[in-house]
């Protein structure tokens, strides 16, 4: 019980920290690409060591043997996807409240990063399902929600591509992102309810071996750094693109013309 509370507090703290960090940090990252690169390198190092740990040091699982090891990639990827997309929701709401262009770039960056991790999560989930349950796909709530989420945020990025006016693009994609974010829990509930009538799947929810726990946490942090790297890089691209797209305010001519 206490562990649950601690975990919830830690995750919330990380989320809030990410929010603040992105808001202030991404702008810095535009001028200092080396800062962005540092996160990438850190993330890569952590990921490589994390995968090594997960592949060779952590023990095999009681039911699934060695097959389960892919979950050291699958679970952090899913976590990062949800982090990124929940941040996207906050950025979108913030943009609608006050047309701060930083928020729009952050929303775009977090959506793309979330999509990348989401694809990773769904693919690894599918690869995992094959030897475990014999099928490439199961209709369990998590996988289904993740798949709908991917299609949805693919749509978000399509919308951004197809709207030329930057101001409309920001507003409309924010509106859509709010719909999508509200909708995701609904997808979860409805699929869960639907599946509860048919059958329930089993996933390794309880991880007791400390080596497994450490491996998971290590990989989670690795992916967190990679998430930061992705978002900051994508933010940079978005900001620089916007600079070419939106002209700065026009100079006032010295000669005024009053009618």
């Amino acid at each position: 019980m206490v562990t649950q509370i601690i975990i919830t507090v830690v995750v919330t703290a990380i989320w809030v920290g990410l929010l603040a960090f992105f808001y202030w940090g991404c702008e810095r990252g535009v001028e200092k690409p080396r800062l962005v690169g540092t996160f990438g390198i850190l993330g890569l190092l952590l990921a490589v060591s994390g995968e090594y740990y997960g592949l060779f040091v952590a023990p095999p699982e009681s039911a699934m043997g060695d097959v389960y090891r892919i979950f050291y990639v699958h679970v952090p990827a899913d976590w990062m996807a949800f982090m990124a997309l929940s941040l996207n929701f906050v950025f979108s709401v913030a943009f609608l409240f006050k047309k701060n262009w930083r928020m729009d770039s952050l929303a775009e960056a977090s959506a793309e990063a979330g999509l990348v991790f989401g694809i990773m999560g769904v693919c690894t989930g599918s690869i995992w399902a094959r030897p475990t349950w014999g099928t490439w796909w199961t209709w369990d709530p998590r996988l289904t929600t993740a798949a709908v989420l991917l299609i949805a945020y693919g749509g978000y990025l399509a919308l951004r591509r197809f709207v030329d006016d930057p101001e409309k693009r920001g507003v409309w994609s924010a509106v859509w992102a709010i719909f999508a974010a509200v909708d995701l829990p609904l997808v979860w509930f409805s699929v869960k309810f639907w599946r509860s009538i048919h059958q329930t799947q089993s996933t390794p929810e309880t991880i007791r071996d400390p080596r497994m726990q450490w491996s998971l946490r290590w990989n989670a942090f690795a992916f967190l750094f990679l998430l930061i790297f992705f978002v900051m890089s994508r933010y940079r691209i978005s900001r620089l693109a916007r600079e070419t797209e939106m002209a700065p305010p026009p100079e006032a001519l010295p000669v005024g013309g009053h009618a």
Partner: peptide
């Protein structure tokens, strides 16, 4: 008062000011 309107890269209006009284025709 000093209105400007931008469409992406282009400023369609820049620093336009205008005052009309009721009944004016411009």
């Amino acid at each position: 008062q000093d209105v400007s309107k931008r469409y992406g890269r282009r400023w369609a209006l820049a620093h336009v000011s205008l005052q009309l009284r009721p009944g004016d025709s411009l």
